[in-house]
Write a protein that binds this DNA or RNA. Structure first.
Lengths: 216, 216
DNA sequence: GGTAAAATGTACTAACTGGACCATTTGGCA
DNA sequence: TGCCAAATGGTCCAGTTAGTACATTTTACC
């Protein structure tokens, strides 16, 4: 009610949620860029609107912060997937759309990919204990399982088709395309990751998956 | 020529090559396990027959050791590939064999896979400057390029087939199968990585690649 | 307006870690 | 056999980094 602005006041405005959000965003980008050991808590703090003190206040320690950043990455990506509605399409077309979407979605979320790479380097030890992530992922395969079921009922998909194995195939292409881009580019050049070639690869991937799913 | 054994002597026996080899082997396993920042020079030294002093004597610094370990990983893997001879097989079968071999070979070399993962996390900065690795990899695709050419000449492969893009597809499946095993297992269980399921996935991968390569 | 708990700022530290220093021994060779 | 460069051992150090102690301010509530 005084006419002093925030800047003029000696003190500050409390905003716990925004502070947590701020820290998490910065931490995610830093961990994704440098890995767990490579990331520096001081660097994260300096890129924040707040201080290192608050990181430890809200997240306990470096590992706690990392775990929450990992969960945040999964949450964001799974949110983006939720908008995809394939129920109205015939199974083959639904599958083709799902593959193409997954391919593009992974490309659009490189930080998520990098966090998963880092988790794999660490043998998924932190992912394994996160109930949040486990719940998210069990749901992630539902769409695909539904498509498989419909395709089998319609007689167009193989009877022995396993949704988890198919998910493995779709993930392999979509994930590798982002995760191994640096080494692949360094060896074979970057043309394969520019737009025209990416469309070819995406189409190849769709065809490959359909070849696995459909009856001969 | 005295009858004193090595153990009884105050001194030691010089063996530069063995010392370098010893350090490299330990370093490769340590870097593969913990990444560049995660690896500790002291830990590497302690697992060696020699001392930290020798690491700096022969490799300069931590990055120098890492680079040499990376090169050693590539050398070992490419050596294993050299034994594969497919020239006597018709193109389709040669391709099928190459895919199956690559799939198995990646599984058999998890430390190599992890080193490549780590390089990708670091944006392939160290791989990019290694002439040793570049030379190795240009040769790595020769076998596949030859199969492609033969298949196209025989009229069984698509005319637009690009060996690099096909190599991408083969690598995606073979690499992902090892690199993402920890997170994939943590979420969906480990059955997919046990022998029966691995054979299914390998066969699926062969079929998928053939579907991409062959005329409709 | 008073009080206590939550939230924030500042400065510090103990331990770790990559790397360097100095001394000593080995082995090839004149 | 003596000499010198290569190889090795043992110890120490300076910079970094995760984490903490202590003080202060804000806010909710009565």
């Amino acid at each position: 009610m005084a006419m002093t602005t925030d800047a003029e006041r000696r003190g500050w405005t409390q905003n716990p949620e925004a502070v947590k959000e701020d820290i998490l965003t910065v931490a995610l980008s830093e961990f994704a860029a440098r890995g767990f050991s490579g990331a520096r808590v001081d660097t994260i703090a300096s890129r924040t609107q707040t201080s290192k003190r608050m990181i430890y206040y809200y997240f306990g320690d470096k590992l706690g912060l990392y775990t929450r950043a990992l969960e945040a990455a999964y949450l964001e990506v799974r949110e983006g997937e939720a908008s995809l509605d394939l129920d109205h399409l015939p199974p083959q077309e639904a599958l083709a759309r799902l593959v193409a979407f997954t391919f593009d979605h992974h490309r659009a979320n490189p930080d998520f990919i990098r966090m998963v790479m880092i988790e794999n380097i660490h043998n998924a030890e932190n992912l394994a204990v996160s109930q949040v992530i486990r719940d998210l992922n069990v749901a992630a395969i539902d769409k695909l399982a539904d498509i498989c079921r419909r395709g089998q009922e319609a007689g167009v998909f193989r009877a022995a088709l396993d949704p988890v194995a198919l998910h493995w195939q779709i993930s392999a292409a979509s994930f590798f395309n982002v995760s191994n881009r640096p080494t692949f580019s360094a060896i074979f050049g970057s043309e394969l990751f520019e737009e025209p070639a990416q469309e070819v690869i995406r189409q190849q991937t769709v065809e490959a998956i359909l070849a696995i799913a459909c009856k001969a």
